[in-house]
Design a protein around this nucleic acid. Structure first.
Length: 419
RNA sequence: GGAGAGAUGGCUGAGCGGUUGAAAGCACCGGUCUUGAAAACCGGCAAAGGGGCAACUCUUUCCUGGGUUCGAAUCCCAGUCUCUCCGCCA
């Protein structure tokens, strides 16, 4: 959430920054609510001071006066709270401000390609889509998932299930051993305020699967990404600068309603309600956010290098970035059957935006309390990596070569064939 | 599911109606000492918000929400969470 103090000091700049993200900001409303709020606070505090003085004096003659003041205070407090809540509701739904080097544009058309890596393989036959390959191998079963569960789910079976697990294990091992991340096996559900902390609530409630444990307790949500639960590990904490950076990795299922993408990617497992993802999260001193973003993105692309999959790196435009992000790189992998690149990772710096929502702070070397910086990135989306391997490593007979680095995770299997 | 215990600052932990924003220790920051470090010693060290150009000052906060009282970390009620024991189950 944005600090109202910063807005107050530089309202026009704030307005412009959010307009660059194509957000309709009611600046006048915000400023007037803030002013009213402060007026209420001032009069409330004046009364509180009077009351405190009376109680300190211990003078019985003043006691009845104190009671009167109490009533006035509670009235003022109620009015003040109403204004404050109204103000907060507006602030809570405003996205983070983009950094200066982020291209301004209203949607993905304004994203900019930064680099292309790897060679696109020339097939001597027409490459099949991952779902054709998987179904032919009898290792993807979409119909069965429809029967047991519904649309946008899949059964992965046999060697492809093993391959999926191999991909996940290879990625985690790589991040642990080469990049210094700590592996976490987190809860797959998150509470209301946890979801708020990383920015999924209040604005994107419709994308989340809500869980009710019982009538009385608060609602919970299936995590749409491990980012939510990993980042919130430092919620409501004041860390020491010596503990930073914190680097976490987890491989978890992710659950998304995919509301608003009806009819999009309906075939295959590109867009599912449930998918595995290896997620990277960094908690850093905010002055290191940009370096960490580069580092994290490199951790993600290294996986694709090792898997020998062609990819490109793009920087998202202001309109295409996520709610909490200040700068985002997407990594897109080559999908032969579609003859184009598709997103396989998204790495974002959130600056102190999430930290302010979570109240995650640290003491710096000067012993001052500051908000931490948070970053998250996929390293990588496991389901989509499986897709990319199927398509890029396919042979004309429908078999799949196992990528070199995954063989140790597949009992040194060279090739996946039907039967 | 049954029976208890508890929730205090970055951490451990005192306080159980009135200079308690909160003892003490640890951690952290600054200093003395030292070639440097450690140890020892000295000093500092909660957060959020408001007012003020500033020095500074005020308010709130001892899990959350109500209540009692002139006054609550301290008493009462409700809730949340944690722990221990018993039962049940992976």
């Amino acid at each position: 959430m944005h600090n109202i103090k910063d807005i107050r000091e530089n309202p026009q700049e704030f307005k412009k920054n959010l307009e660059d993200r194509f957000v309709d900001i009611k600046l006048e409303k915000i400023l007037s609510l803030d002013e009213t709020n402060r007026k209420f606070i001032l009069s409330k505090e004046t009364l509180e001071k009077q009351k405190k003085d009376i109680s300190k004096s211990k003078d019985p003659k003043l006691f009845s006066k104190s009671k009167e003041i109490s009533e006035q205070i509670s009235k003022l407090a109620a009015d003040q709270l109403k204004i404050k809540n109204e103000l907060d509701d507006i602030l809570k739904s405003l996205p983070n401000v983009a950094l200066k080097d982020v291209p301004i544009g209203k949607d993905e058309k304004f994203n900019k390609e930064i680099s292309k890596t790897g060679e696109i393989k020339k097939f001597s036959f027409k490459p099949k889509s991952h779902y054709e390959i998987g179904e032919k191998l009898k290792m993807f079963d979409f119909d069965l998932a429809t029967k047991t569960t519904g649309s946008r789910f899949v059964f992965v079976k046999g060697k492809l299930a093993q391959l999926e697990r191999a991909i996940s294990n290879f990625m985690i091992d790589s991040h642990i051993t080469n990049n210094g991340y700590e592996e976490i096996s987190p809860p797959l559900m998150a509470s209301d305020d946890t979801m708020y902390g990383t920015g999924q609530l209040p604005k994107f409630e419709n994308d989340q699967f809500e869980i009710k444990l019982d009538e009385d307790s608060g609602r919970k949500f299936l995590i749409p990404t491990a980012e939510v639960i990993l980042t919130n590990m430092v919620k409501n904490q004041i860390l020491n600068y010596k503990n930073l950076p914190i680097r976490l990795v987890a491989s978890t299922p992710c659950f998304r309603k995919e509301a608003g993408s009806y009819g999009k990617d309906t075939r295959g497992m590109i867009r599912q309600h449930q998918f595995y993802k290896v997620e990277l999260v960094s908690i850093v001193d905010p002055i290191n956010c940009l370096n960490e973003l580069e580092r994290m993105t490199n951790c993600a692309t290294k996986i694709l290098d090792d898997l020998k999959l062609p990819y490109r790196k793009i920087i998202l435009s202001t309109g295409d970035m996520g709610f909490s992000a200040e700068k985002t790189y997407d990594i897109e992998v080559w999908i032969p059957s579609e003859n184009k690149y598709r997103e396989i990772s998204s790495c974002s710096s959130c600056g102190t935006f999430q930290a302010k929502r979570m109240k995650s702070r640290f003491k710096n070397e000067a012993n001052e309390t500051k908000f931490v910086g948070t970053l998250n990135g996929s390293g990588l989306a496991v389901g989509r990596t499986l897709i990319a391997i199927l398509e890029n490593y396919q042979n004309e007979d429908g078999s799949i070569d196992v990528p070199e680095v995954l063989k140790p995770y597949m009992n040194n299997l060279n090739k996946i064939t039907s039967n």
